[in-house]
Amino acid sequence: MRIRERIIETGLFFSALSSVFITLGIVIILTYESFGFFKEVAIVEFFTGTTWMPLFAEPKFGILPLVSGTLLTTAIALVVALPLGLISAIYLSEYAPHRLREMIKPVLELLAAVPTVVYGYFALFFLTPFLQNFLPELSGFNAISPGIIMGIMIVPYVSSVSEDAMKAVPMYIREGSYAMGATKFQTAFKVVIPAAFSGIAAAFIMGISRAIGETMVVAIAAGMMPNFTFNPMEPVQTLTSYIVQVSLGDVPHGTIEYRTIFAAGMTLFLMTLFFNIIGFWLRKRIREAY
């Protein structure tokens, strides 16, 4: 019996450890391959160059166009996702009657279950032509339409984490506000949101990381054009969609072109890591808020 317990415990231990090993493996490979890349391309050139043409005869390795593309689509997504997500969360947590909330929540969460490739084609074949009715100069591939679609895709993540944070604010704090003659709206905005602030901030950070890392929607609808621009009407390429593009092509293993994937991946990893660390730090503070 004792031996069986030990076997079970060891099995559980290694299962838990596997994700740690996988993460470590990814970091090691990323670092190793990027190291090879940076032996041939100067770090300064990589991080300050404004032209990304790694597959040309005279290659240029400035990552900024991919970073600008990523930041642009992410920013558009956030402009959509943060207000919508927060408003849905406020409605669900503070206003919706119990039965309605139980109906809306699963539907909202279903948004997160739609495959991203569907969202991508939705952006390309529905939203872009639709927007072209109002913006005739909008190019067929652009940053705004996948940005908006990504935003809608992220709403359930933002709203569900924000709602949990607001629901965790104890009722007696709300009662204190109502007892002072506050309305529901005043209670939600002046008391519940400040009390749930760190949780809501964590939800926002999660949404940001999700938008930065999103691949399929931008790969399909943003145009694969490493364009150093902040104009949402133009086609752009993000770090993720570049990686897809090269991975799908026939770049030979071990070449500098091949290693650009890892340099781009490393940049992406650092960006999401940065936001996740902020999110982690905010989450740790959540219990001290009230």
Binding site: P170, Y172, I173, E175, G176, S177, A179, M180, K190, V191, P194, A195, F197, A289, Y290
Partner: peptide, 13 residues
């Protein structure tokens, strides 16, 4: 008509 509660419930302010 104001109220003081069983458990002190100051706002996070």
């Amino acid at each position: 008509i104001s109220m003081v509660f069983q458990k002190p419930n100051p706002f996070p302010k």
